[in-house]
Design a protein around this nucleic acid. Structure first.
Length: 424
RNA sequence: GCUGGAAUCGUCUAGUGGCAAUGACAAGAGACUGUAAAUCUCUCGCCUUCGGGCUUCGUAGGUUCGAGUCCUACUUCCAGCA
């Protein structure tokens, strides 16, 4: 089959007016020289950084209308090339992800690299930041990695499939998001140093191949979208710094910071990477967004983050509030709002914890779905507001105060101190 | 009044002689971080030094090595007939 015969989205075609590469400007940096606020400009609009990218894996955030998502203040949406691989020709016909999804704003697609782990060595496991997981036995995995790419079994159809760097680039090209991710191998916390060395080298070779394929498509079709290289290297400084230098020297438009992290390692690992990466290019921290991670990520040079946690945890009844997370099930008949100070649509509409809990527990699927929507809106807005406040506080030189207040309210003073000690 | 049938952990339910006894819901606790996730794990008679101990299937007796299960009476409920 000819690789590039499939349709490309409108904005990817040479005659399109929207043709513009990504640009990134830094407005202000923290004293440590890593954290910064700025703006990413894409063909579909601007992203003020640091920013949260809402995860709409298959082109929409679960249970949310695009208008709901806009109202949370989200500026960008991340979808997944793996999940959209079969729909990609249809998305291209429709004019690309932004148009197809109705989002009409900046978009990013993941390469499918995460699925190397989630269907492979991490199958059935939780991607925890608090402990190491056992690797899934080889015979039980749905995905097997080789230098060629990843052979995997579709969990639903049982069909055998293959995605490598070239396939991922072709899929992402058809989907036509503003930012694409190089195909990478995400290791789990259970993988040792030696395995991480191998995975890192493989990821570097895949980065070259991703870049080459991306360039080939661009040159032959006038396509101009943006490609981020993704860094791996586990929790080892030599690997992280090395791969940051190697990928940093390649012609990527930005970088994805990948890996499974222990919480106490996150800051230093990001620092190792970002001290080596070119300052003028944007960096996306893949898959994190708990409040504490946002601050650590930002301070250590991450410009954008994405994560399923706000929406997934919302659906599972874990709600973010100024004073920490709450389990909604504990608030039967409660007349309190989810968060007194919240400006999300759900809280502004007066939904109480008790009423939301009733919706959540309802056997009526439409009521359940309404709960999922209202709770997702709240957790997303809560998360995005942190990013907005970081931007504001940096501009007014009050970042440290904002951060201290927020974290002490959220985790409690003792916990904040305990964690600080752990980081050293 | 007669004749059948039924009564099991908050609710519904499995169990017709052999290990406190099935499953679901509810309840309680926890997990979740580039979405195999409207999901998953644990607890759910009482006590426990986690070895086990104790008390339980409407009530009271009985048969039996052994009864939620069989028998008798009673109580309550349901159905049919009066």
């Amino acid at each position: 089959m000819e690789k590039n015969q499939q349709p490309l989205p409108e904005q990817a075609r040479p005659e399109s007016e929207n043709l513009s590469p990504l640009s990134f400007t830094v407005e202000k940096s923290l004293k440590n020289g890593l954290g910064r606020i700025g703006t990413i400009k894409t063909a579909h609009g601007e992203i003020k950084t640091p920013a949260f990218m809402a995860v709409g894996t298959t082109g929409s955030v679960r249970f949310l209308e695009m208008s709901d998502l806009k109202n949370t203040g989200a500026e960008a949406m991340l979808s997944n090339g793996y999940h959209l691989r079969k729909k990609s020709p249809e998305i291209a016909e429709a004019g690309g992800l932004a148009k197809y999804s109705g989002w009409n704003g900046p978009t990013l697609t993941d390469s499918g690299g995460f699925q190397v782990m989630s269907l492979g060595s991490g199958l059935g496991k939780v991607v925890s930041m608090d402990r190491k997981i056992e690797k899934t036995k080889k015979k039980d995995r749905l995905a097997l990695v080789s230098d060629r790419g990843v052979d995997f079994t579709d969990p639903f159809s049982g069909e055998r499939e293959f995605i490598g760097p070239e396939e991922s680039m072709q899929i992402q090209t058809r989907i036509g998001a503003d930012i694409h991710m190089a195909f990478d191998e995400l290791t789990s916390l259970a993988d040792d140093y030696d395995y991480n060395v191998r995975a890192m080298f493989r990821t570097e070779r895949w980065a070259e191949r991703s870049l080459a394929e991306h360039k080939k498509i661009r040159d032959s079709l006038g396509y101009r979208q943006n490609l981020y290289g993704v860094l791996q290297g586990g929790r080892w400084e030599d690997l992280r710094r090395r791969t940051a230098r190697v990928l940093g020297a390649m012609n990527f438009d930005g970088f994805g910071l990948g890996g499974a992290f222990l919480k106490e390692d996150l800051g230093k690992i990001l620092r190792w990477c970002n001290e080596e990466l070119p300052f003028e290019k944007p960096r996306h921290l893949l898959g994190l967004s708990r409040p504490d991670d946002i601050f650590v990520g930002f301070e250590n040079g991450a410009d954008t983050l994405d994560c399923v946690a706000p929406t997934r945890e919302a659906r599972h009844g874990r709600i973010y509030t100024k004073h920490g997370e709450i389990y909604l099930r504990k608030f039967k008949d409660s007349p309190a709002l989810l968060d007194e100070d919240c400006d999300c649509e759900t809280c502004r509409s007066g939904w109480t914890r008790g009423k939301l809990r009733t919706l959540w527990k309802s056997p009526n699927l439409a009521e359940k779905a309404l709960y999922y929507k209202l709770a997702s809106i709240h957790n997303l807005r809560f998360t995005i507001r942190i990013f907005e406040n970081i931007q504001k506080s940096v501009k007014t030189h009050s970042y440290d105060t904002y951060k201290k207040d927020f974290l002490e309210n959220y985790y409690g003073k003792d916990e904040v101190i305990r964690r600080k000690l752990l980081e050293k």
